[in-house]
């Protein structure tokens, strides 16, 4: 039964993710007082990408990009199939590693430099990503998603600090300003399209598709904090997911991009203070 839910994610994930991306673009445009593209523009873009011939830089690129897609799907499947959340995070890391390697394999200045920046972004997010899993483990006593959602009280009650820390790295994870140092959704980036500079045509379409999966996966991680054994909590989760996504768009359009040192220190400091503080508090409470 749960496996089926996993496969439903595989099918519906990109549609919902693409929709989220479309909404993001519409809101962004309105915040900048532009008309902006229609809601379904991402899908049209995708269709266009897939029609184009991919000019491949080298033979490694195709399989590295495919790996990127496959492991982000697996990360979502693991979550929805109710499996181990830590494995879902490992799979997500692996998927990003594939994208980095695709950029590295181009052996060109823009690709190479943004691949390194992407690695730095991963270094910024990884402590907190692991902490997410630890937070759920502390609140439910298990890494299994089935056990996490079966709790009487939602995780947010126990681990609000972890949630706050997660919100900060979510900006990095979704490649939003101020933390979009490796590649950006805005045209003014000095890295052009960053890691995807040397990726073209249908391969670019696959990267886009993976990004939708990732969008929806992040949405799901947010929602997971609010879900409990009460069915109504699912609604709260979805609502909060939408709210957080809106918040991300708002942040994206409010803050100017920062330098990498700033990104690193902000991410690590918030992880340490919010998540680490929460962890310390829970441990102390358990002791006494």
């Amino acid at each position: 039964m749960l496996y089926v839910l996993g496969f439903i994610f595989v099918i519906l994930g990109p549609f919902l993710g693409g929709l989220l991306s479309g909404v993001d673009r519409v809101f962004s445009a309105r915040m900048q007082r532009r008309q902006g593209p229609p809601l379904l523009q991402p899908f049209a873009d995708y269709a266009k990408f897939m029609q184009k011939k991919a000019y491949i830089i080298n033979g490694l690129q195709t399989f590295l990009i495919t790996g990127h897609l496959i492991f982000v799907i697996l990360a979502g499947w693991i979550l929805y199939a109710g499996q181990d959340i830590l494995l879902s995070i490992f799979s997500l890391t692996l998927s990003e590693m594939f994208l980095c390697m695709a950029a590295f394999s181009a052996s060109a200045p823009y690709s190479n430099m943004s691949a390194q920046r992407e690695l730095l972004q991963m270094a910024c997010t990884e402590p907190m990503l692991l902490m997410i899993a630890i937070g759920f483990y502390l609140s439910s006593g298990s890494f299994m998603v089935t056990d996490i959602v079966a709790q009487k009280t939602p995780a947010i009650i126990h681990v609000p600090g972890f949630f706050l820390g997660f919100l900060v790295i979510l900006v990095v994870e979704l490649r939003k300003s101020p933390f979009d140092v490796s590649t950006s959704h805005h045209a003014h980036q000095e890295m052009v399209k960053g890691v995807t500079t040397d990726i073209t045509g249908s391969l670019m379409g696959i990267v886009e598709l993976s990004e939708w999966y990732e969008y929806f996966l992040m949405f799901s991680y947010v929602a997971l904090y609010f879900v409990s054994s009460n069915p109504l909590s699912l609604l709260v989760g979805i609502l909060m997911g939408c709210l957080v996504m809106f918040l991300m768009t708002l942040i994206d359009n409010t803050f100017p991009r920062v330098r990498w040192e700033r990104m690193l220190s902000v991410c690590w400091a918030t992880t340490l203070i919010f998540a680490g503080g929460n962890l310390l508090l829970l441990t102390l409470l358990k002791m006494f």
Partner: peptide, 28 residues
């Protein structure tokens, strides 16, 4: 607690140095 923190931050920097090396090998 301190070990958990050392581990998660250390894991992040570990990823960074290995991945950078891996990238060099894979450049074509």
């Amino acid at each position: 607690v301190w070990l958990v923190l050392f581990l998660v931050f250390g894991a992040a920097s570990t990823t960074f140095y290995w991945a950078k090396w891996l990238g060099k090998l894979l450049a074509v």
